[in-house]
Amino acid sequence: MITASHPRAEGGGLSGLLLVALPVALLIWLVLWPVLQAVVGTVYFPGKGFSLSSYAFFFTDAYSLRNLWLTLWVTALTSALRVAVAMPIALYLRFRSGSIAALVQSLALFPLFVPSVLVAYAFIRVLGPNGIVDTVLVALGLPKLPTPYLTPAGPIIGLVWERLPLTLLLLLSGLGRVSIASVDAARDLGAGGLTIFSRIILPRIQSSIIVALAFNVLGLFSAFTLPYLLGPASPEMMGPYMQRTFSDNADPLNATTQAVITFAFCAAFGLVYVRAIARGRRGPA
């Protein structure tokens, strides 16, 4: 796989393996083995032999492809928006203290404690048709806004809101490793804000950004509740589409095929993170 050359290996293989043994055993027993069974079930049929027909169907079916495309598109847009919104807040929180900063942090982390179903309810009550925004606008004698409910914008707004704290937490924890002293020193040398950000801060929090993006992709590919409650009926994101194929169409073969394809996309993004970690292991540049 990824070759991580190791000029300064710190420990032997045995102690490493012992340390990871428990989680890895759990993983193999309760996740990898069932996943393997599911994957094999989509290509091997007892008595009939190997067949890739369900994959061929997916990649020739315009409807399925449109759903996959929508998922990729929503994932890209939502992840970008989350990082774009969370980054300024994280920078602010890292370099400021005091009661206002504490309040900002508490507010920004709050969505962490709100389950998706409630996000959807709150969304409908606020931005939905004749929700509180419309109510206020009408009371002020202004026209109603076109509501994002049941349009593609609906789930995107909901998803950014819901997972903003996760992105923020990861960026913030990464920023914890940027020492204020180094930023001050750079400033004394006359570096501008942008230079400090790109030269000093960004390299230190790279792995946090990548892990944040990786979690975003994972979460969005399996997102179910918000796309289903707030989005349009079609095209569907992969989460609701798989669920519908599985339970309403009672078609486990195609549902699992969709799951494997989704899984492959997530694994590709996961690989980026693993590569970054492997690169980092060689020691900071």
């Binding site: 409908i124 048709p129 409910y149 409650l229």
Partner: peptide, 22 residues
């Protein structure tokens, strides 16, 4: 239809749109 072809996600979501006067 509502919004030029939108469909709610369930029985209750439709009832709520009716309740909200939408």
């Amino acid at each position: 239809l509502y919004q030029g072809g939108a469909y709610t996600a369930g029985n209750t979501a439709s009832l709520q749109l009716l309740a909200q006067g939408a």
